[in-house]
Design a protein around this nucleic acid. Structure first.
Lengths: 199, 199, 199, 199
DNA sequence: TATGAATGAGGATTCATTCAT
DNA sequence: GATGAATGAATCCTCATTCAT
């Protein structure tokens, strides 16, 4: 077993274990010992690779957002037209709770810290900002090709993200309340009816 | 100072103090001692009136939702037509983050516990359910008077709530990202364009 | 309901409740609140009639021994001959665990405090001393009527009490280990064979 | 000071300290902090090696019985004849209160918990059962070599243990009441007169 | 007499973090 | 690099006792 170059392996191992702990026990009920047990390492190792628990948690959040972003890019970028991209993005957002419920669990847990932890708040703010800015780009494209009303552009990105997040949250809290696959159509329709795509 | 019949006074005092603690310190960084200091009572009194910290927290959440619901009812109920009601409801939802940021702080903190705490989850699920069901009633009314397309009704309540919550969350996390008073118009327009109100 | 002369009624009520608490929860797991709940009075009442918890407990122990002693006297005193008395006394001692298991529960609980609580130790010592001294009297009588060997008298009372207590304790701890009614015969035989009763 | 492989050392250290605390302060007046101070370790270490206070106490009881049993075996086993063994066993039991008063202090404290703590009850029941079963074996041997009346065997072990325990308890509670070295002779005589050893 | 509200010290237990090995 | 023993402050909670009513 290599002793050198373990850094990446160990960090990854610990971050993944922390994620699982958040999902299984929750942000506020999870000790460093729990994490080390889940990762099958000693507690000492954690402090060897991370400054402290808070540092580790921040890295977990960053990694979680990084992966989520990566996933979105992979599916959306290859598409050509702005409306394909927008609709794909909506699909992506809408399906997170089903496809990757752990992401939601992690995000909700961190969201609870946003009020009192500026660092976490900053990371989440940046993530939301990114989501909006991708959508803004598609919209810009749509305006440029003359198929979108410029006056609707201003809040569209925030509204699109809002719908996705709001649907996801309601569904995570109560999956019986509606069918999340079913609602996707309405989600798209609502956006479309608002921006009045011109043929 | 009276010694008898203090129950309601003390419970209220402690619940309010707990709310303040959640807002100022956060759900997971707040000790019973913090609460008792905030409420200017002894820790013992908290256990005299609440079974334990969890019980207290649940009551804080319930109380928070109760007040929020009350507030909504007061402004929406007096209105006559379904579209006035719906739009007022939207306004209400949209303004919570500005008018009552503490409510958002509390809710976000509890939302973070929803994954791992079935009791909290139940209370939040019920609250979201209530929000949707009020909207559903306005919509029913709208369909009955022939001014609303029935086929849009199915997900409208969830979508309306989603927009409100999603806007609020983004704004709480980053108030610089958009003007929340400004976005209200777009919020309403999006709903209206979807349901195609007939004159 | 009389307000004057409540002292005896209340004291008795509280002492009985305390006894029940000791039996049901154990000496060291029982709070003043438990006692007041069991007695259906307020905690304040307890401090009105007893100096403090320790005082109350001492009175419970005394009362327990007083009742036990009373019971013994009632059945033994009417008898005539010393050997009838001795055997009846043995029967009495032997049957306490079955007839009055609460007494054993209470005594065992207090016995556990004897090492570290001189006051409790004193009361128990006196109780054991009493038991021995009654037996010594019967034996004196036996010697005087010439039916008992004087040289066996010295330790007989302690040995008789020892057998009774030792049997009781083993049986309380494990009632399956022997039949306590059955062992009485052997208990008596052992005493008889030792003192060689002359016809 | 070594950092690895401390488990046995620490456990022993803590168990011994707990024993001392029970003797000096009593089962119900002794805090984990007292124990940790007595053992000269931090409170944390106690929870590192024992599940909780109750677990620790159970191990103390077990250890106490284990040592006592060991001691008995060492002195009794080398002996040849059943009556030598029986008498030695009686001597051993009788001398515990003098030779090892801590054992009695510990046992009495735990005995007080037997009514309300099934686990403690089980351990004590087993210990008493062991004591009886050793004696039963000597008796069997005596019957087989024809020097003991079989009909007396049934309760003899319980009666022998009863005498020993009963004497010890009375003496612990009031050492002035009789001379425990002196009573040993009578203890033995009582057993001998009962079983009528044939030459 | 009687109540039960109120106190706060003290209880068991957990936990982030350090450090000798 | 890696371990897990060790710490002790901080957590939640209980409880004997007091006292205004």
């Amino acid at each position: 077993m290599p002793k050198l170059g373990m850094e990446e392996i160990r960090k990854d191992q610990v971050i993944k274990a922390t994620e699982r702990c958040i999902v299984e026990k929750g942000y506020s009920n999870m000790s460093v010992k729990d994490i080390s047990a889940m990762a099958k390492v000693s507690t000492g190792i954690i402090y060897h690779y991370f400054k402290n628990k808070e540092d580790l948690l921040l890295q977990v959040l960053k990694e979680s957002f990084r992966k989520s972003h990566e996933q979105v890019m992979e599916t959306v970028e290859p598409l050509r037209t702005f409306d394909e991209k927008l609709m794909k993005h909506i699909e992506n957002i809408n399906r997170v709770p089903v496809d990757n419920p752990d992401f939601y669990a992690v995000m909700l847990n961190f969201l609870g810290q946003t009020i009192n932890n500026p660092e976490i708040n900053g990371i989440i703010a940046k993530f939301f900002g990114n989501l909006r800015s991708y959508i803004s780009q598609y919209i810009q494209d749509g305006i440029e090709v003359g198929r979108l009303q410029p006056e609707k552009a201003k809040h569209l990105s925030a509204l699109t993200v809002a719908l996705g997040m709001g649907i996801g949250m309601q569904w995570i809290v109560d999956p019986e309340s509606f069918d999340i696959v079913d609602i996707e159509e309405s989600y798209k329709e609502m956006i479309e009816s608002y921006i009045l795509l011109k043929e």
